[in-house]
Design a protein around this nucleic acid. Structure first.
Lengths: 383, 383
DNA sequence: CCTGCATCTGACAACGTTGTCCAGGCTCTA
DNA sequence: TAGAGCCTGGACAACGTTGTCAGATGCAGG
């Protein structure tokens, strides 16, 4: 694993609630007085704390003007003669001055940054989502700070609170946990928040989700329409809202078709490839094997494709989430596609509408899914 | 496109150099004095600028202690009696206080955040890279701010400078441009910087790259070893270092084999699917068509796979970058794989070593690539 | 009871920026 | 030439936090 034994470690102590136990008097300073900051990078020239970055004061001194005049020039405010402005600009260029946004933020109260907490940036589903959020943020002049919760509620909370401590203007959260009451003080304090992909737990907030239930129901109904009755379902832990909704859609479709679902057809909560593989193989090895499988997310789908590729008989497959190259496989993979970018974009836009102050009551926005037929979902039952 | 007509727009004016022209006296304030901040979110209770967030002062007042004592409790510093600490904790919980890291940063000089500038977060290659950087950052208690340059040098610079204005402690940059002299003042000021995937231009800095040259050469040599001589190359603009290196590898392998490369075999700088498709089709329609294609990156590979899937004769293919499901296609796609996560991890670790102050001379770290044979690269020449 | 010492606490300045406000110089008019 | 009004520039406080330092308190020993 990663080790962080280095001296650079600014664990941010985000939860003032829990640090009672952390009372470790780590006075790692050397008592020396001559060197006021031992953490300063060795190569730096002594100066102020940011290396030796010039400040507006330095620029002002060099240009022979007042501090505020520099501020005016830097921010393009009116009331500076071209001459003065020119002098200031020269000083800025000569010193390599760059405004310190930390100080600016402290003064202005807005950070022009928003936080995005998602599950795993390495998951191909979240890349486009994140990118979409970023584009909207960029259009509003804001930067994006993001972090992965790794599907761990505790880590999600830790991240969210760290972002709040940074005073991000808003948060886009893909929840890992199901209880977000810890966010109440933040919401009350005016942190704009939008949940995406899954709803918030225990609190009232904006949510942008896909129609997981409807999508799964349609996907399973599609299999049923092609003659399948024994349909397997492999999905994530029902603790996760999307997984639960998709399971509900599966059950609903089966019920609509008048088919009693057998426990052995369902595998819930398995997510690592090896166990997904086992689950799929078990369903297929049953004396009454499933003739089709509905998979609850992209990762499961990929693994099941691998299993089916080795399986002697044709088994139909519909997966939730689109996957790249799905059209090039033989058969092509039929999926219930959701638009990750649209989720992100919608959420971010909603967020900035909150920030504009034109805030309405919390709303739940549901985006439709789309059944993409490519072959695997149209295979007839083998038995 | 996205519009940002809303009132929330804190375009951060990152370049004091260029704002001479932006002198627009936008006094959008209402002259009213009673309401000092009209941008405040409507729903908020009037208070300080962060909604009405309590400050340490408020906590101190409520707990009946001094400001500094609150600070001590929040930071787990020693020298507070359990009684006092308890009173402070109660006040913190009651008020929902959360330390303002902006102020902390201003005081301490370190932001505990690093910036990551990459090309496109939606590209499956960068997801794992970004995630790896994030994990290292997390291990060091730092947050990750990231942005996409969309392969636009100007946008890269804009982003990097915005991050510098935030005083991120360090930068991991996947360069879009080839001139990074604009970073000189920042480097001099002590901003730790590591370039990944492609080297920096015109400045001396740490770089972590894959062995693009060697990987491409081996990939093409692999095709040659399987009997191919007329081998096409489709890659990105040679302006991009990786693309140039891979092209160089292609040429080297061809030269080693004593094969003169014909211009019609190469397509450089096409990147959007439609034009890649045209380029591939043109090579295949030649009177002396290529019998194999080497593709310069994952996106090109995917498009070429589509073209080859429709093509009547078997054409061998080796692609740079691994792609998901490559093993499930028929034939499986042979690729030169680079380890995106390792790139990110290595770069981030190097960055934090810089931040530790144990700084060495700028170094170039090259990670090996791996040829993964799956079938498409082992097809014999059809002609 | 006083001194010395250790422990705990809080006043104060500083971080770098921006908002407010006033001073000084200018132009224009009477 | 004086006065009004405008334009430009700068002094100052404030944002919320942390480092410094000195004061207050408690306790042991003389």
């Amino acid at each position: 694993m990663l080790d962080a034994t280095s001296s650079y470690n600014l664990m941010t102590d985000t939860s003032p609630v829990d640090n009672r136990s952390r009372r470790t008097p780590v006075d790692d300073r050397t008592g020396h007085r001559i060197v006021p900051d031992t953490t300063r990078r060795a190569a730096r020239i002594p100066g102020n704390r940011y290396g030796n970055r010039p400040t507006m004061k330095d620029v002002a001194a060099r240009a022979g003007v007042g501090l505020k005049t520099v501020s005016r020039v830097v921010n393009g405010e009116p009331g500076v003669t071209p001459e003065t402005e020119h002098r200031v600009q020269e000083a800025i260029d000569a010193l390599g001055f760059r405004r310190n946004d930390s100080a600016r933020v402290l003064r202005k109260g807005r950070t022009a940054s928003i936080g995005l907490v998602l599950e795993d940036l390495a998951d191909p589903f979240y890349g486009p989502l994140s990118r979409a959020v970023e584009e909207v943020a960029r259009a509003h002049g804001a930067l994006l700070i993001n972090g992965s919760s790794a599907e761990d509620p505790e880590r999600e909370q830790e991240l969210v609170l760290a972002l709040c401590a940074r005073r991000v203007d808003g948060l886009v959260v893909i929840p890992a946990g199901d209880d977000h009451r810890y966010l109440e003080p933040e919401l009350k304090a005016g942190v704009a928040t939008v949940f995406v992909d899954r709803p918030a737990g225990q609190i009232d907030a904006d949510v942008v989700v896909s129609d997981n239930f409807g999508g799964a129901r349609d996907g399973v109904a599609h299999l049923i329409a092609h003659g399948h009755r024994r349909i397997g379902f492999i999905g994530d832990m029902p603790r996760i809202h999307t997984a639960a909704e998709r399971l509900r859609g599966y059950r609903a479709a089966m019920e609509d078709a008048g088919t009693a679902v057998q426990d052995s057809w369902m595998s819930l909560g398995v997510t690592d490839p090896e166990r997904v593989r086992q689950a799929a193989e078990k369903m297929l090895a049953d004396p009454q094997p499933v003739t089709a499988i509905f998979t609850g997310n992209n990762r499961v789908t990929v693994t099941v494709i691998r299993v089916l590729a080795e399986h002697p008989t044709d088994v139909a497959l519909v997966g939730f989430d689109d996957i790249e190259l799905a059209d090039l496989l033989r058969p092509g993979v039929t999926v219930v596609a959701q638009d990750a970018a649209a989720l992100g974009r919608t959420a971010a836009e909603r967020l900035f509408r909150q920030l504009d102050g034109t805030l309405l009551a919390p709303e739940r926005i549901e985006l439709p899914t789309r059944l993409v037929t490519r072959g695997s979902g149209e295979l007839p039952p083998a038995h």
